[in-house]
Amino acid sequence: MNIGGIDLDTFLTAMLATGLLRAVPLVLAALGEAVAERAGLLNLGIEGMMLNGCFFGFYAAYRTDSMVVGMVAGILAALVLGLVFGVLTITLRVDQVLVGIAITIFSLGFTGYLFRDLLGGRNVSADVHPLRISIPGLRDIPIIGKALFDQQAIFYLSWALVPVFAFLLKRTRFGLNVRAVGENPFAADAAGVDVVRVRYLAIVIGGIMAGFAGAYLAVADLRIFTEGMTVGSGFIALAITMLGRWNPYRIVIGAVLFGMLRALGDGLQVIGVDIRTEFIGMMPYIGIMLALVVLAGRTALPSALGVPYVRGHR
């Protein structure tokens, strides 16, 4: 297809391929956040947890040349912060926004510090050899073929988590408990649900997924670490969670849309359209706000979101 001298195929392929790649960390982080929010926990530390996932994931991968080690390290680093968030907000019942921002501030400094201290602030790259899975036949489908069927193994794994989370939230006892605890912890408690335990599990899942998202970004996708490299991805994931109303499939739509907005620059470059990087750069952020406006009023937060649970303290 060729419109006005612009090769549309090339453009769409580039957009879709990059867009899907950019969407993966957003989807991963947003899936975890969906569970946390459903359980009544608004995790603004998600940005910091992702950043920790980036650094520890990258550093471990850099030292061991193993992608798997990197992913595990990134997940564990964020998991620890998830537990800190849990202790402070669930057990000690401190304000979630305060704790979340504290964790993000700490992580910005902490990962920046370690980057200087352990890597001398150099932009080294990790020599990992990710397993690539290229599906013969399917990868030759025009436009979507290369974007969907010629990727790293972990790319497929990430997308496979979407139905897993949908199942977890909708069809399991744990998912039901999570939703009950987020909507009405008193009723849930009365029905015999261990509110504290469910909330801890939810934030642990949130931490794991934020770490996974960060490690994916630094280890599988970019293979480098730079200070503050998440540039708000965690916060965007949080917004996408709200946009998708905690439904994993709707989250995917939001994430792919914003992944493609982020990929717009690459796409336009391929077809030779010259546009200021700053305009491209602010697209995802403006897009989020517009989408929130469009959906305003149709999004309802879990009613106990942000509210600590005190037994008998109705």
């Binding site: 000690l92 401190v94 992580s107 902490f110 510090y113 200087r116 200070e227």
Partner: peptide
């Protein structure tokens, strides 16, 4: 000691603040 130490310290202060307020 990298300057980032100060940012890290600010984050730690706020985390400890959250804990001490609860206490």
């Amino acid at each position: 000691v990298p300057t980032y130490y100060i940012g890290m310290l600010e984050g730690l202060m706020l985390i400890f603040f959250a804990a001490t307020v609860a206490l």
